[in-house]
Simulated assay, not measured.
Amino acid sequence: MKTTHSLMLSVTAVCLLMCPVMLQAASLEPIDSAGVQVQQQQQNGINYLSGGIGLDESKAIQQTTGYNLHMTFSVGTGNEYIPDVDVVISKAPGQTVFNLSQAGPLVYVQLPPGKYTVTATRDGVTRHDTADIGSGAARNLVFHWNDNS
C-alpha cells in the first residue's frame, strides 16, 4: 500500500510540475480552428487583420506574427473586447494611410517604419494615441471606453 501511495504522490507531483507547461501550450492553440474566420486583408498596400470575436478567433490573431502594430478595443470595468470601432491611422496631419470601419476587437497592422497617429472612434467617442513603428518589437495600443460611452 505504501508503494502505491508513494507512486501516486510521484505521479501527482509530476503532473503539478507539467500542468503549467501543458496549459501554456494549450493556450497557444485555437480551440476550434474551423470557427476562425480571420484572414489577412490589404488596404493601400498595408496588410492587416481585424476580428477577435470569441476565444478561438482572438487566440488565432494573437498568435500571428509579422504585424508591427497591435490594437485592442475594450469597454467597461471588465475590459470586455468590443467590435465596431472606426480606425484611422495617419502619418502626418491630413495624410491618412489606413482607414477601417467597424473593426475589432483586435486589429493587427503591418506598417512601414515611421511615426503614426491612431484615432479610434466608438459610438461617437474618439480616442487618440501615437505609434512609433521601427524594426523592433510590435507596438501595442489599447483603446478603452467606459460602459456609458
Rank of each mutant, 00 (worst) to 15 (best):
residue 146 N to L: 10
residue 104 G to D: 01
residue 127 R to Y: 02
residue 134 G to A: 01
residue 130 T to D: 07
residue 39 Q to L: 10
residue 5 H to N: 14
residue 121 T to Y: 07
residue 143 F to E: 14
residue 32 D to K: 06
residue 42 Q to S: 13
residue 1 M to L: 12
residue 70 H to D: 11
residue 58 S to L: 09
residue 128 H to S: 10
residue 84 D to C: 02
residue 69 L to G: 03
residue 43 Q to F: 07
residue 32 D to H: 02
residue 14 V to G: 10
residue 33 S to W: 09
residue 42 Q to W: 04
residue 36 V to K: 05
residue 112 P to M: 14
residue 40 Q to P: 08
residue 137 A to V: 07
residue 81 Y to S: 14
residue 147 D to E: 05
residue 55 L to E: 02
residue 85 V to K: 03
residue 138 A to C: 01
residue 21 V to P: 09
residue 25 A to W: 07
residue 85 V to Y: 02
residue 50 S to Q: 06
residue 139 R to F: 05
residue 65 T to F: 04
residue 135 S to V: 01
residue 136 G to W: 00
residue 55 L to V: 04
residue 41 Q to D: 05
residue 47 N to S: 15
residue 20 P to R: 13
residue 46 I to Y: 06
residue 17 L to I: 15
residue 137 A to L: 09
residue 21 V to H: 10
residue 5 H to M: 14
residue 133 I to Y: 04
residue 82 I to K: 09
residue 60 A to G: 05
residue 79 N to F: 02
residue 127 R to E: 01
residue 103 A to L: 02
residue 57 E to M: 11
residue 22 M to E: 14
residue 36 V to R: 06
residue 123 D to S: 15
residue 134 G to T: 02
residue 145 W to I: 10
residue 100 L to Q: 13
residue 61 I to Q: 04
residue 27 S to M: 00
residue 116 Y to K: 13
residue 68 N to C: 09
residue 75 V to G: 07
residue 84 D to S: 12
residue 132 D to T: 06
residue 72 T to C: 01
residue 119 T to L: 09
residue 114 G to V: 04
residue 18 M to E: 14
residue 61 I to V: 05
residue 98 F to I: 00
residue 126 T to R: 10
residue 29 E to F: 12
residue 39 Q to F: 15
residue 91 K to N: 09
residue 80 E to D: 13
residue 28 L to R: 06
residue 72 T to S: 06
residue 87 V to F: 08
residue 25 A to C: 13
residue 20 P to Q: 15
residue 7 L to I: 15
residue 102 Q to F: 01
residue 113 P to G: 05
residue 23 L to T: 14
residue 80 E to G: 09
residue 27 S to F: 02
residue 58 S to I: 08
residue 4 T to C: 09
residue 36 V to D: 01
residue 117 T to K: 11
residue 113 P to H: 00
residue 92 A to R: 08
residue 87 V to K: 10
residue 14 V to I: 15
residue 124 G to Y: 06
residue 120 A to L: 12
residue 52 G to Y: 04
residue 139 R to K: 08
residue 77 T to H: 06
residue 83 P to S: 13
residue 32 D to W: 06
residue 62 Q to T: 10
residue 143 F to V: 12
residue 44 N to P: 07
residue 25 A to H: 12
residue 110 Q to F: 10
residue 128 H to M: 13
residue 6 S to L: 14
residue 35 G to Q: 10
residue 25 A to E: 12
